[in-house]
Write a protein that binds this DNA or RNA. Sequence first.
DNA 1: AAGAAAAACAACCGCAAACTA
DNA 2: ATAGTTTGCGGTTGTTTTTCT
Length: 326
Amino acid sequence: MGRPPCCDKVGVKKGPWTPEEDIVLVSYIQEHGPGNWRAVPTNTGLLRCSKSCRLRWTNYLRPGIRRGNFTEHEEKMIIHLQALLGNRWAAIASYLPQRTDNDIKNYWNTHLKKKLKKLHGSEGYCRDGLPSSAASDQISRGQWERKLQTDINMAKQALSDALSPEKSSDLTELKPCHGNTYAKPEGYASSTENIAKLLKGWMRKNPLKPASTNSGVTQQSYDNMVATGVTTDSANSSEGNDQRCSKPMCEGFESLFVFESFDSSNSDDFSQSMSTEASLSLQDETKPDFSPQLSLLEKWLFDDAANQGKYYQLSDITLDENPSLF
DNA sequence: AAGAAAAACAACCGCAAACTA
DNA sequence: ATAGTTTGCGGTTGTTTTTCT
């Protein structure tokens, strides 16, 4: 007996999400909180499978995520964490709370892998830029363990370096492959921002109907959104734009969630932003506890870095101080 | 200016772990 | 204890955008 599909394949829409779909999804989550994805398509009328809804939310619509503009520091973090943890993107993303695993994965595949390849050349490195020696499963167990210990020490040191602000390692010398910066232009608008505008324009045009299902956004919830920062400026709203987010439209968007511009180099900004965020539905989001995600090794690195008072103050982002974060 | 190639990114797929009845 | 269901994760693909010729 095979595993049943996550949803009916028939009648399920695929491909890029439209602004309208985003609105519906955001509205629903705004009201019900994330989770129970199975029920989302049913309750919202979205012709998407639950998986797609979840992905859309976690990777784009969820408040607090930062897109594009990977900083040098983030790059280093990713590179070192990848070396340490391998392609465990979710684990890596847990160290960069503003980034999604998908984003990190894409960034790794499109940018960092190439960078490392250029930096190290092909010699001594296998695919994914990892030292080929790490994959030597022919060596004896004892050798392997010693090697592992060495690798751990190296990784620890590397992570230390990455966590240190004052140290600009050789990685800083990594230049974009061609003239461009890696990050998108400043004008790059996050999806949440896009949705913010959309919500404003759309909701005005479509007075929120309590809807037959519980999918509709109530006026109250709309008011909540306004209260939490959605401005009333509708000049750039998505009037008549029922296709994918066009650039001019996106560029004029404001933030639905009123986040300060995130900068991973400033954890205070982050905390601040997260506390703002706490007023939103994220507070209901059932995020896994942070600490259990940490393997012993990760925890050790975590603690070690914190003890050394290093730059990336993960310790600043604790459950106690930011209950909304996790 | 136009077409081709490369790069970037959004989204899908399948597997496996976690959860629930 | 277990079968069924849901969710999370990582790999991969498809589409769009940008750069090059």
